[in-house]
Design a protein around this nucleic acid. Sequence first.
DNA 1: CTCCTTTGTCTTTTT
DNA 2: GACAAAGGAG
Length: 695
Amino acid sequence: MNTDFTQGLNPMQKAAVLHTEGPLLLIAGAGSGKTRVLTHRMAHIAGHLARPYEMLAITFTNRAAKEMKERIHRLKPYDAHDMWVATFHSCCVRILRREIHHIGYDNSFVIYDMDDAAKLLKGVLKEMNVNERQFPPKSILSAIGRQKDELVGPEDFAAMSAGNYRDEIMAEIYKNYQKQLYGNNALDFDDIILKTLELFMRHPIVLDKYARRFRYIMVDEYQDTNTAQYQLVRLLASVHGNICVVGDDDQSIYGWRGANIRNILDFEKDFYGAAVIKLEQNYRSTGNILEAANGVIAYNQGRKAKKLWTRAQPGESLNFFKAESDYREADYIVEKISQGLADGAKHKDFAVLYRINSLSRVIEEKLVERNMRYRIYGGIRFYERREVKDTLAYLRAIHNPHDDISIKRIINVPKRGIGGVAVDFFEKIAAEHDIKFYDVLKNAEMYSQNTARNRKIANFIELLEDFRARAAELPLEELVKEVLTKSGYHSSIVAEDEADGTDRAANLSELINKAAGYEADDLDENEGQTSALAAFLEDVALVADIDDHSENDDTVALMTLHSSKGLEFPTVFLPAFEEGIFPTYRAVTSGEPAEIEEERRLCYVGITRAKQRVYISMAGRRRHNGQTISNAPSRFLQEIPQELVESQAVPITPPPPPRPAFKRTERAAQNIDFNQAAMQPNFGKKWDLSKIKKM
DNA sequence: CTCCTTTGTCTTTTT
DNA sequence: GACAAAGGAG
């Protein structure tokens, strides 16, 4: 059996694999073979130093976790099944499923997504008689989320906000929101991390169990961790101290979600005696692409010193094209893909990476027109579709009767004649008597003389209780089918609208297919799962669309720059390089250099996704928010060394030197006449103008 | 109670 | 231009 896992690695990579004891910071630039090092390192440890179940690897997405598991498996010296390779969230859920009763929740807790959380919050606001205008649910929710990221609980927040009228109200909202989550036996996304921490702090014995168990811990994408996650890692590593974090400060793009870039910048201070290894050789991109990326990111201040290099040839120039309109821009992209396909490329060799989801629309339109296989990742996710959420609400209500949000979602879907008036009535009673909403419904006749209404409620309760009984005996797939038919939901969807109804029905079939993968027999006891239904609901709550990205389906990929992190493609399109879009309007107007820097890192991520070709483009006018707008070229375009870019417009003034003061960048950005580029677009040799449709 | 129309907000990114 | 919330008619 092979026990040398350093074969074929460069000296730095080798060092990273072999340095197993104590804290280690691995600065891994884009395309530097990071995943390779991580997987080899895990194999090495498992082969020589520890049992698989003594190892924990934390990734950011389920996709990354899955890929890592597969690659370790391929290295194959043992059964990787017992190894914990998981996202922060799924790792914490696993722990909480077994242990959350220590802090007063029931182990069958549900996980609320943003939609559920928003509904809950609206209920809180209504109850408190707070104006939704003054306290918009969405922004409150993210404010609460940020508090949670920073480990500020409702009481802490109340203490901090004394004297500030608005914050005092916020504190009250936060408190009630948390109380209601608890009442529903539900956790929101941030709670998953926060409650795990709370568990560990209040019950050191529980912490000790896990901290002892995990002798080797690895954290990927460390630059994107927030304060709560950092504390969690610190606690888990407190016994053995073998903590390896991997990251790239230049790819930190989740500041808005509470990611604390200080976590990576200060690692050496936080973990005394930490070793630092830098991986700077890039194996992914051509020389030109790498140089372009380096050129852009050099404008950021406060980075860890690092410069990616490659042995690869310079390759082709980057391309820039200014189209007249967003439609023309899409034409350009699709035409380039079409040329590539004619030259023998596969669909999956192409990716279109944009700043905002709404940009996918026009491009999708053109891809459909040309009959090209494509897939949009993110945006409206499968599990966020109305019909899917409705069905899941049934399943959740069956699983957990106290999940008020789900009960309310389906109580009148399909129409049962139980409207808002009835719901408000019983909800008020529940609040007054401090009983669960569901229990009030169950005993409706105790509280209400309205017999017609009580009858309808009783029917609904009976339906649910019946499902609940059936849940115990039926395979999950059958249960879902039965729920859809007996509730009348399926027929109501079909009846709703011709075209739309078929679409939605198809999604329901898809959901049934997904459910079919869950059987009572192959439950993972390790994960504390008690039923196929529970396992299904849990997985569904934590999957993102990007997790489905597979090398196997041959489609052009459309996704946001954020979603693209960790992926690579031979050809990458970066549309809408425009001030106001990329960088985003908010970043431009906020006057916060930090916001522009995060946008710039996003640009860096985008360029470094490409192996061979990069096509940057913009539109002279585009429709955005229902309006036609014209944007100036993105400042990031200016920051790419101009000799690397092929476009008709040659800069009149030389580009500004790297690392200038912030203002200077802005001024320089206006010196170049990109309108000239629009006059004489560079179509390349194979471009046939006649193929562009008139609009 | 439901259906239909009108009005206002929204678009940054997601586990 | 999409979608949710609110208001009015039946």
